[in-house]
């Protein structure tokens, strides 16, 4: 993974309820320091002089309590613990509630090369947000060749060899009112160990598509902002492949196939491609079927259950009427 510095943290593009509202108020030289752990530390114990097991490689968060303690330390001129504090390579100190550290603290940070950041959020809310943001940054990542679309609210990842018609299928789906997340290369991230999020690999080329014969087109401009989305959880994988007459495709649909990416198992379907087969409508149906399954209704299983109970009642009837029955 590339190194994630404090400057990258300040530059993180987060929206609305995810924003961190961070600004740098001192120690700018230290903005190049690398954040190695997606974790926080409240340095209460450390400030009081207890340095055993000090998690200095974590981001240090100063809330109201720590801030008040700092003020007391400086007013009583007991700054020896702070000298030790800044002797460690701390990635950064963050003050919540828009608290302003005492000037001498800023000076010491400046000397120690430790950036000091400030946010207007309360400590608990800030911790939640930054943990969420960092776990997404530090999540395991993988770039794959495929197209990610949102169909009826289900994130569908279309895979297949180049030239099989992934982009064309996605285009038809967009035309039908569904959304494009990324075409051609999709970045997958494993969030919380059980969620697979997909997004485009590069913001510059976001929501562009290459269609053979047309070239590169901009989906955002052509179909409007309703046709695109930045990221989406991958909930279904559709593998497109050329029709292979020797291969046996699923005819009933009661078997559950999955594909694994970054340790997350995702339900998958294989769809053979042949001229005249309308792939977008099959994908739409697959997505709707997936929604039904999430609600606990399995079409294929339900159908089989009905068949079984019908057969049972038929045979019961035959026994009861001694095979002479003619209805």
């Amino acid at each position: 993974m590339e190194k994630f510095t404090v400057l990258d943290l300040l530059d993180l593009e987060l929206k609305e309820h995810n924003t961190l509202n961070l600004k740098c108020i001192g120690g700018r030289a230290g903005l190049v320091r690398v954040i190695q752990e997606p974790d926080l530390n409240r340095p209460g114990l450390t400030l009081s002089g207890f340095y055993e097991e000090f998690a200095f490689q974590r981001i240090q968060v100063f809330g109201r309590g720590e801030w008040a303690f700092l003020k007391k330390l400086y007013s009583e001129n007991r700054t020896d613990t702070l000298v030790e504090f800044f002797s460690h390579e701390i990635p950064c100190c963050i003050f919540t509630h828009n608290l302003q550290p005492v000037p001498s603290f800023s000076d010491m940070a400046e000397k120690g090369g430790c950036p000091v950041l400030q946010t207007d959020l309360p400590s608990s809310e800030f911790s939640r947000r930054i943990i969420r943001a960092l776990s997404s940054v530090f999540a395991e990542k993988k770039t794959i060749h495929g197209t990610l679309v949102e169909v009826f609210g289900i994130g569908v990842l279309i895979l297949g060899d180049s030239g099989v018609g992934k982009s064309e299928t996605a285009l038809e789906l967009i035309e039908r009112g569904h959304r494009l997340i990324a075409d051609d290369s999709v970045e997958l991230r494993c969030v919380n160990g059980n969620l697979l999020m997909g997004s485009g690999t590069n913001m510059v080329a976001g929501h562009h598509m290459e269609i053979r014969g047309l070239g590169i087109i901009n989906i955002n401009h052509l179909f409007g902002v309703g046709a695109i989305r930045d990221q989406k959880q991958v909930q279904l994988i559709v593998e497109l492949e050329d029709w292979n007459s020797t291969k046996i495709y699923d005819r009933v649909g009661s078997g559950e196939q999955t594909l694994e990416f970054l340790g997350v198992k995702i339900p998958s379907v294989q769809i053979p491609v042949k001229p005249g087969r309308n792939i977008p409508i099959i994908i739409e149906t697959a997505a709707m079927n997936e929604r039904l399954k999430k609600m606990g209704y399995y079409s294929a299983k339900e159908f089989n259950r009905n068949v079984l109970s019908w057969l049972e009642s038929e045979s019961a009837r035959t026994v009861y009427f001694n095979k002479k029955d003619v209805f």
């Binding site: 590339e2 060749h145 030239g163 290369s185 485009g200 080329a205 598509m209 290459e210």
Partner: peptide, 15 residues
Amino acid sequence: DHNKINGKSIMGIIT
């Protein structure tokens, strides 16, 4: 930089 893309896809190469 650990970013592996398919050489047969134009958008992949540009991105």
